[in-house]
Computed example of a mutant assay.
Amino acid sequence: MRRRTAREKALQALFQIDMSEAEPNAAIKHVLDDKENSDYLTTLVTGVIDNKEEVDKLIIDHLEKWTLERLSNVDRNILRVAVYELKYCDDIPANVALDEAIEIAKKYGDEKSSRFVNGVLSKIKETLESSL
């Protein structure tokens, strides 16, 4: 499974977890639709869940005139996956994490999602880079 596909499936699994409080493994299995799992998909989903408090705090700290709860479930989970990659996946260049999130937002979000995701993630990226 390509990493882009893993990111998209992670978004779908996290969306399902948000909406129905599904267990992570059940959500992953559901979105795979009998296709083979990838370690990266599992890493993204469990990583976001295990670090949700810290990931969400980073997002909240960089939202202007928005609350996390007010974001669409799609945008919120795209941001979560990308922030997890930015903060915890040293083998993923920051620009790749941003570009992937923007492309996924174009595909799954509304017409303003990609610009919104780009703005929030760019600020988070700057914060993380300045803290190194």
Rank of each mutant, 00 (worst) to 15 (best):
M1D: 01
R2E: 04
R3G: 01
R3Q: 13
A10E: 02
A10Y: 05
L11F: 09
L11C: 08
F15S: 12
F15I: 15
D18P: 07
D18F: 07
A22W: 12
N25Q: 13
A26N: 10
I28V: 06
K29F: 00
K29R: 14
L32I: 01
S38M: 00
D39Y: 13
T43V: 05
V45Q: 00
V48H: 04
V48W: 03
I49D: 03
I49P: 02
D50P: 02
D50M: 03
N51P: 07
N51G: 05
E54I: 08
E54T: 13
D56K: 06
D56E: 15
K57D: 06
K57I: 01
I59R: 10
D61R: 11
D61M: 08
L63S: 09
E64T: 15
E64L: 09
K65L: 11
L68Q: 06
L68N: 07
E69W: 05
E69N: 13
L71N: 10
N77F: 10
V81K: 00
V83K: 06
V83W: 05
E85I: 00
K87T: 03
Y88S: 02
C89T: 07
D91F: 14
I92K: 09
I92T: 15
P93A: 12
A94C: 04
N95P: 00
D99V: 05
E100Q: 11
E100R: 14
A101V: 04
I102D: 04
I102S: 03
E103K: 14
E103A: 13
E103V: 08
I104N: 08
E111M: 11
S114K: 12
V120F: 13
K123E: 04
E126P: 01
E126N: 14
L132V: 12
